[in-house]
Design a protein around this nucleic acid. Structure first.
Lengths: 207, 207
DNA sequence: CTTTTAAGCGTATGGCGTACACCTACGATC
DNA sequence: GATCGTAGGTGTACGCCATACGCTTAAAAG
């Protein structure tokens, strides 16, 4: 009976993401998104209850850019590496939204699908029961931590340079570590850490 | 010559942390902190340049609650576990500040001291050079990721219950994993994941 | 007691999220 | 094709927020 909606929630989320990609997370406001959609500010509230919900939609949208289908061949750890890299690529392409994932991780269907596939790979590798629960959480913890570290100060970035310049008498180990870190790319760093995590998960049954 | 300051930056940071602990991160505002200090809003600006700097001070303050001294005895992985638990305890006691650590991780002396000790433990364990750089970052990535996961939905919490109730035909592996996860406490989860990471780091020299 | 310097405060500006009341376009009904 | 109900779209307004600016004032130094 009534007037039909002229936008989908996806379009709204896409507009918000466009604002974030262009102006940073600080540039995200209901006014800015409405303008992006050529709508009045308040019209936006016909599509989302509040800013909180809009943020959730943005996180969802990025998750939909992650291919959740299981990688076909190879050993289990290579498969999980593939899944991890997909996640890292998607969120790395919109690094500014990372703070949103912290408050909106729960409410995303995409994250469930990704987790389902990874849990399946673990099960196929013989990691099951409580051990699988710990393993899945450990993998996720490493990935989100690594993504955040990467976009807060990559190994080769200024932060590392600053650390390498620290007083060597006070922080000898950090300075030495940073000296080597400067020659490690973010990709190598991410894969190296992940490989260690997977090696540890696969090795013993201790859990 | 002039009138002396009546407050230290530490006191200001403590007031801000008190506000956060009481009213959550959303309750943090220059006005609220000023009121906590029985100061006018603008007087606060004599102690911090802006809100950004205040947030940094809060993160610093929590880091000062972390004992950075190297644990005395035991194998290297037990030492790192001790260091990790200290960090987790400190931030777990003020879980609401986690989003701040994301944007203020760099500028903290406490984090450097903590890292220095951990880097030293790694070096003593024979993990040196580029391998140490990757290892240090991996440990940090796991810890911050795990802390965030823990306070966004612990294994035994509502989130896991919701996942366990998922349509089993669509998310069989997640449902099964969550079923086991319900019986794992946050502590066991954290230690289990960390143990896997350390096992992987110590095992091979691949990096 | 005067001088000097920064501490502390009041006011004002421009942005934000969003409640509310209003207009309006449109599909369904007759 | 006229009418009506509904929900889409809008403008205004309120109470927050961070913070720039300029004033008053406490107190140390002389």
């Amino acid at each position: 009976m009534p007037r039909p909606r002229s936008l989908t929630q996806d379009q709204v989320a896409a507009a918000a993401l466009a604002v974030i990609d262009r102006d940073g997370l600080a540039g995200l406001s209901m006014r800015a998104v409405a303008k992006e959609l050529k709508l009045s500010t308040m019209a936006l509230y016909r599509y989302v209850r509040d800013r909180e919900e809009l943020e959730g939609l943005v996180v969802d949208l990025v998750y939909t850019e992650v291919d959740p289908s299981p990688p076909s061949g190879g050993p289990w750890d290579a498969k999980i590496e593939t899944m991890a890299l997909r996640l890292r690529d998607a969120f790395g392409a919109h690094a500014a939204i990372m703070p949103l994932t912290l408050t909106h991780r729960h409410d995303s269907r995409g994250s469930l699908c990704w987790g389902e596939t990874v849990a399946g790979i673990l099960a196929d590798a013989g990691i099951t029961g409580p051990r699988a629960a710990v393993a899945l959480r450990a993998v996720i913890a490493y990935i989100i931590g690594a993504i955040q570290l990467e976009h807060l100060g990559p190994l080769e970035g200024e932060g590392t340079v600053a650390i390498a310049a620290l007083p060597a008498d006070e922080f000898p180990n950090m300075a030495e570590t940073a000296r080597h870190a400067r020659h490690i790319g973010p990709d190598e760093e991410f894969r190296g850490g992940l490989a260690a995590v997977l090696r540890g998960l696969g090795g013993s049954g201790a859990g």
